[in-house]
């Protein structure tokens, strides 16, 4: 009795393996890239960049403590300086929004010049405000990035450490990724004519530094760190706060986490 069972299970394993191989082979005919995807991800795990950084060993995210932000706009200024973003008010890798929610539940949002020079205080507020706050915005480095999904040529991609990058020497400048981003985080760079966006300062974080905006935030409203390590400033932040993400219904799975997120923030 036992023997026959064993035999049967052996048989079925063999059959299953055969079917597996067969389907694998068939799909490989249809989509050649599918075949070596596993092999590729193995290779990518051992990938070491020219500066000794291995992407597969990291997984980055950012925390934003909304009730610490004072709206000074130093992050916006530093971002533009660090990343050669044009100073004109149409191109931002990060910006700060001000929310004023009035008693009659009207909400006014503004971000004059991305808040690079802070905010002016409207001298006379017409109605009573019930709450007001600042919200820093940037690329959400989605785990499920719609921009990467739509890029027709593979010029934007998610690196092994979760950061979404743009290859400006390969981008054709079609603008589809800009349309697909629900957060308005992308723009077409007026000089290179290619898509551009926040990279978490990839040239800094791969050199053991933190992003420029985090570096200069005077109130530590921005926290940068590893998501998957046992302990990191970000992991601590996520333990200490209730966390919200932007537009969760779109299933983009952002890796920018907001503490004290208000329902009016979109």
């Amino acid at each position: 009795m036992m023997e026959s069972l064993k035999d049967k299970s052996k048989n079925s394993v063999a059959r299953r393996n055969f079917i597996k191989k067969l389907t694998f082979f068939c799909t490989s005919l249809l989509i050649p890239s599918f075949v070596n995807s596993r092999e590729k991800s193995e290779k990518a795990k051992k990938w070491v960049l020219t500066n000794g950084y291995s992407p597969a060993e990291h997984y980055w995210g950012m925390g934003v403590a909304i009730n610490k932000c004072i709206g000074c706009g130093r992050c916006v200024d530093a971002c533009k300086r660090e990343n050669n973003v044009p100073r004109e008010p149409f191109f931002f890798k990060t910006w700060v929004e001000r929310y004023r929610i009035f008693k009659d539940s009207e909400t006014i949002v503004d971000s004059p010049n991305g808040a690079i020079n802070g905010f002016e205080y409207p001298r006379v507020e017409k109605k009573a405000i019930i709450r007001s706050f600042f919200v820093p915005k940037l690329c959400n480095q989605c785990n499920n990035p719609p921009c990467v999904q739509v890029c027709p040529v593979g010029a934007t991609f998610k690196a092994e450490d979760g950061v979404v990058l743009v290859d400006s020497n390969y981008c054709i400048g079609c603008g589809y990724c800009i349309q697909a981003c629900p957060y308005g985080a992308r723009y077409l760079h007026p000089v290179t004519q290619t898509a551009d966006k926040c990279t978490f300062c990839y040239h800094r974080i791969t050199n053991k530094m933190i992003p420029a905006c985090v570096e200069v935030c005077p109130t530590q409203a921005r926290i940068f760190g590893e998501i998957k390590k046992k302990a990191s400033p970000l992991v601590r932040f996520m333990r200490m706060n209730k966390i919200g993400i932007l537009k969760p219904s779109l299933n983009t799975e952002p890796k920018v986490y907001y503490a004290n997120l208000d329902m009016e923030v979109k």
């Binding site: 500066n51 991609f157 570096e215």
Partner: peptide, 24 residues
């Protein structure tokens, strides 16, 4: 292209070669 994923592998090295301005 396509060495590690559907992108140019050397693009990552190009991106990290960007000049650092803020010293920390």
């Amino acid at each position: 292209f396509g060495k590690y994923g559907h992108y140019r592998a050397s693009a990552v090295d190009e991106i990290i070669s960007q000049e650092i301005r803020y010293a920390g």
